[in-house]
């Protein structure tokens, strides 16, 4: 019961969506597939909420037990509620509620969340530079290729570097754009996409057939 029912559910849902590929949208199986996609979106939404509830529970337990760093966990909890609660309340009650322009949710996103997100990614520039300093050593032909390509691409993307490349004999920017970006880079991306897609397809088949069951956990 605990394992068989989920396997049957996964099988039926998976097979219905695979079969829908071969039928027109106006047929019963086609419309069923459309309905299942909406259902997936709804259940998927609940799984994301489950994650937030889980974060709240973990942080609340740490605050309650006054564990190390509990004050910062309290800040996380307060931030979750300050952002989420006004968004959950209907905008008909007040223009500050809901998600529309001028609401608390919108203000917190624009003036706190978005700048912090940009700063977090900007901080990575320093760590990438530091990692590059350690990793980019021309110790082998392969690592030299990596080093040279990265350096040339970085040069190419800044006005001064572009001017410098233009001074060299031959059309280096054209060569970079044609053979490196649209040639070698595209070929490798295609190879990786084909490999990953074959892996994803075989894993999907394993899940539909009930061979892959690790997502169910233990018990």
């Amino acid at each position: 019961m605990k394992t068989t029912v989920p396997i049957i559910v996964a099988f039926l849902a998976g097979v219905a969506l695979v079969l829908a590929f071969f039928f027109d949208q106006r047929t019963l199986i086609g419309s069923l597939s459309q309905e299942l996609r909406v259902w997936l979106s709804i259940v998927g939404g609940f799984t994301l909420l489950l994650g937030v509830v889980s974060i709240t529970r973990v942080n609340y337990a740490a605050v309650k037990q006054r564990k190390e760093g509990w004050f910062f966990k309290l800040i996380t909890l307060v931030s979750i509620f300050v952002m989420a609660v006004p968004a959950l309340l209907p905008s008909s009650w007040s223009s500050l509620f809901g998600r529309q322009e001028g609401s608390i949710y919108d203000w917190l996103f624009l003036y706190m969340d978005a700048p912090m997100m940009a700063t977090m990614f900007a901080t990575l520039a320093f760590y990438i530079a530091s990692a590059a300093y350690r990793a980019f050593r021309a110790r082998s032909p392969e690592s030299t290729l990596l080093l040279v390509t990265a350096t040339v691409i970085m040069l190419w993307r800044v006005p001064m570097g572009e001017w410098f490349l233009d001074q060299l004999p031959g059309d280096i920017p054209f060569f970079l754009n044609t053979y490196i970006m649209n040639g070698i880079n595209m070929a490798v991306q295609r190879g990786i996409i084909i490999g990953a897609a074959l892996g994803a397809a075989s894993m999907s088949l394993r899940i539909i057939l009930g061979i892959e069951r690790t997502y169910m956990g233990k018990g």
Binding site: V5, A10, G14
Partner: peptide, 10 residues
């Protein structure tokens, strides 16, 4: 979870 996994796999 099985429903999410099954439909996503399909």
């Amino acid at each position: 979870l099985a429903f999410v996994m099954g439909t996503t796999s399909g």
